[in-house]
Design a protein around this nucleic acid. Structure first.
Lengths: 217, 217
DNA sequence: CGGGCATGATACTACCCGGTAGGTGCAAGA
DNA sequence: TCTTGCACCTACCGGGTAGTATCATGCCCG
């Protein structure tokens, strides 16, 4: 088992020989298509059309539609973890740390909207049953990443309750409405061409305000 | 135009001669199937199987899968409006009124879970483009109901800001994380056989607590 | 008791879509 | 100039699924 890939960062489901840039182009087009039509209603031809290509190109990089879907989830969760876990481990007091985490989460949701929207809308339902063993492993990996992400928030909540920074609450329960108010962004928010840092920052601050107040003693 | 159906309560998309009980059975089975697999991945045979019947029965009551989908949304929104709008119009002070509305919303989400889950997960995406004119009208009706529902919350928020019961906020923005924390229930909550009023009430209280504190001055 | 109608089953059709097989063009080395 | 291999395309197949056309079975009412 010495030459196993790093278990903490599951590997891509793309075909082994695939170039990274080619693979990323597929993922970006697929994320946009899934965002617009949903997983099942999106056809491989939809994805190819967005690239000005044909199915051949898509299948040159990925074995199946499910593999593309899983890779999008993996990318999205990895980016979220990369941004937020340093904050969760920082020496800030719990209230300030949660505020930073919420801000970063909201901003990243808007910044890489198609990927994050696909990620937030869930995956188990779409792949129920009809997966190969390799895909099942990838699915489990994504679910573990999601649990680890939620655990970052639960950890800070528990610390804040212990120090008295937050009201008494059950961290495992309280984390749901927090992530809910954040992730609901993917339902109502639509990236607009002109709108930039300003408007996105205002939305993020609204989230921070709401969450931080909801936790105060 | 004197004999138009009540515009505020759009009529069912079922076949005109359909019995109400027969139609409701279809809707219930369809809501369960859509909840499990999603709209596109659910087949008419899936719905029929849940009834111990065949496609013939389903098509006896509904013209198309999209009509069933739209009717589920209509039902779900109508029930939510029926429960929450009396509260929104009650003479309670804003803070107490919002608390009651949040509680009622959360409890109804859990009580009629399959319908509400289908409703919350949205509909525009699944029907984009491929609808008849009649379906387009039904779709617009559902969207109007959804906007009216959100307006109930916005109204109470504005009143609370005016009376000083809530912190200064832009109601149109602040309503998003509120409904987000609530509707996120449909993502993580799973109804369990034994769990009853007690556990559901506890979850609802968590929501109430979080929202009310998030609004305080 | 017989006709009509609501209710539903059976047996199709036409089409769409994921996936595959094999080919083509082109760039880089020798 | 020949060769090799990558990147991608064309053409196709097979299974699945929405929707339809038609037939069977009761149940109510005269």
């Amino acid at each position: 088992m010495a030459d196993m890939p790093d278990a903490a960062e599951p590997e891509s489901g793309a075909r082994p020989a695939a170039r990274v840039e080619g693979r990323d182009a597929i993922l970006e087009a697929a994320a946009a298509a899934f965002t617009e039509r949903g997983y099942t209603a999106t056809t491989i031809d939809d994805i190819a059309d967005r690239l000005g290509a044909t199915k051949g190109r898509v299948y040159h990089y990925y074995r199946s539609k499910a593999d593309i879907f899983l890779d999008i989830h993996r990318y999205a969760m990895q980016r979220m973890l990369d941004v937020v876990s340093p904050i969760a481990r920082s020496p800030l007091p719990p209230a300030a740390r949660i505020a930073e985490m919420v801000r970063a989460h909201a901003l990243l949701l808007m910044a890489s909207f198609p990927f994050q929207r696909v990620s937030v809308q869930g995956l188990e339902r779409h792949l129920a049953g009809r997966v190969t063993e390799r895909q099942r492993n990838a699915l489990d990996g994504v679910i573990r990443m999601r649990d680890a992400y939620e655990a970052l928030f639960i950890g800070v909540l528990e610390e804040g309750v212990a120090t008295g920074a937050f009201r008494p609450l059950v961290a495992r329960r309280a984390v749901k409405p927090i992530l809910g108010s954040l992730n609901w962004l993917t339902v109502w928010y639509r990236p607009r061409p002109q709108e930039d840092a300003g408007a996105q920052a205002a939305i993020a601050e609204e989230m921070v305000e709401f969450v931080v107040r909801g936790l105060r003693p």
